[in-house]
């Protein structure tokens, strides 16, 4: 079933607030997939990896 338009708008708004605009679409894709079917563990981790790669962090690589 489709996810609520207010939920979509809220994720986008929260992402803007937190400076994670790029991550919003990845999170929404995951939520939409979850709302339509039961995801297995591998599929969840795939969504998570995509989301992680879009997340902005201030971690350095340590110069190593």
């Amino acid at each position: 079933m489709p996810i609520d338009p207010e939920l979509i708008a809220s994720v986008e708004e929260a992402a803007r607030e937190l400076g994670q605009e790029k991550a919003a679409q990845r999170l929404l894709k995951w939520l939409k997939d979850m709302s339509e079917r039961e995801l297995d563990s591998a599929e969840e981790l795939q969504h998570l990896a995509a989301l992680r790669s879009a997340i902005k962090t201030d971690a350095e690589d340590g110069g190593a």
Partner: peptide, 29 residues
Amino acid sequence: KIAEISNTVRMRQETVAIQQLAARSKIIA
């Protein structure tokens, strides 16, 4: 060791950022 910990720390920061995004989205929604 720095490379190893950096990866873990980066992953932790991503995790916290994801959780913040989810929690904030939920509050707004």
